[in-house]
Design a protein around this nucleic acid. Sequence first.
DNA 1: ACAGCCAAATTCCTCAGACAAATGTTCTAC
DNA 2: GTAGAACATTTGTCTGAGGAATTTGGCTGT
Lengths: 250, 250
Amino acid sequence: MAKRASFGRGRPINKVLRLHGSIARDLGIAIVSGRYQPGDLLTGEVASSEKLEVSRTAYREAVRILAAKGLVESKPKVGTKISPRSKWNLLDPDVLAWTFANEPDLDLLQSLFELRDIVEAAAAAMAAKRRTPEHLEAMRDAIDRMARFTLATEAGRLGDQDFHRWLLEASGNPYIISLTTGVQAAVNTTTMFKQRERPLPRDPVPDHIAVFEAVAAGDPDRAHSEMSTLVHLALQDTPLPRARAKRSAG
Amino acid sequence: MAKRASFGRGRPINKVLRLHGSIARDLGIAIVSGRYQPGDLLTGEVASSEKLEVSRTAYREAVRILAAKGLVESKPKVGTKISPRSKWNLLDPDVLAWTFANEPDLDLLQSLFELRDIVEAAAAAMAAKRRTPEHLEAMRDAIDRMARFTLATEAGRLGDQDFHRWLLEASGNPYIISLTTGVQAAVNTTTMFKQRERPLPRDPVPDHIAVFEAVAAGDPDRAHSEMSTLVHLALQDTPLPRARAKRSAG
DNA sequence: ACAGCCAAATTCCTCAGACAAATGTTCTAC
DNA sequence: GTAGAACATTTGTCTGAGGAATTTGGCTGT
């Protein structure tokens, strides 16, 4: 039998999960997808670990992960309870990935792009004011690779990611960097394999160049609006779950 | 006597931490404050748990919490390594609290307010377009309480928080809500006890009313700019580390 | 009948020790 | 010199036990 590691094509997007990680992922998906409702109690540690056929240690570490992301809360004598949605760390990279793991909620996806629009456009404007020559050089090189290899190749996608990474770096705000990279990672991994089949509907290079030139020119307003259009185009190119009416969870 | 209607929730700012939670907090503070550097290896589980005089179970659960927030990464035969800053979930509420637990870094605080400015102003603009009469009623009531009791009292501060909470609610974007409430909670808890002694330097009610009226009028642009000034005023009123008084001291 | 205190039951929390799995390192064969 | 095997080390998982915290119910005094 061949190894099942056939996924790992050099990129560390698929990190091998330990047992506690798998349990946390499964439970996390069950929670964010609504199979457990806020206020519900998970069955006790002993019962849960027995049902999953794992040790209490592994199960407890999984619960600890979920608690760290605000999804659950454990107290003696009461049990482990699903927290209200207002306490969830919705922007945690794992929570984002779990949220969009299966059938992405259309409203949620739109809200996410709304946030991306706001934050990334602002980041571009800040980058226009703070970028150094080194930043510009790295961004130019990234666009070069993107144009040379196209997004159909690994190298091309890497150029795309590098462009955005350097743009964020140029914004100089670590919180914006942390927020955006996490969101982008989740969006990429969840939408990438979907648009694997069909060719990209549009050439993204000119739009990136427009952002770059605005940043290079030190024009915050233009950088803002150009990045905003870039995000809107990304939303348009995102394959939406049009199968909503057809498929039903079985 | 009717029960307390508004948000029912008291203030959970002081949550009792279990052993693993305390260890995670201590280690987390040590990491975000730079006492451990990215790339550093923590001493092995057995040695660490012995030095802390706790069981390996408790220590491992603490590490699991830190790993869930992106601060560390564990691999067999290698150990538990401090992750590069780019992987930290800087906007995780706990990480934020740990970051500003002791001596808040001035640059980081400024970056945080920069993000608040961007996101909360956008949220106010969205709220101006999407608010319902119920939202407006709740916000009006919150401002009322804020004006009646002043921010020197618990009830007044609750009104302030309720105002912002309802404004975010009116924005209708769960990601913006999650982001902002987490940031606000961290900023509040870290700056609140500092400005307890001195009286507030300025009456915040008129500024809040300005935001409210713009939202009520359905004017996104005005709501945007009024909220922006509100955030800037909040930054001005934030007691900064007085060590900056003499800038070029040494 | 009711408020406040006390005891009991339940659940998570912590501990200790052992073995298994994974991974980096070293050694060996060719 | 390189590829593969053996080894050592560290985290990962399991098991069993007891302790700690919190809710629940009952008891007591008024």
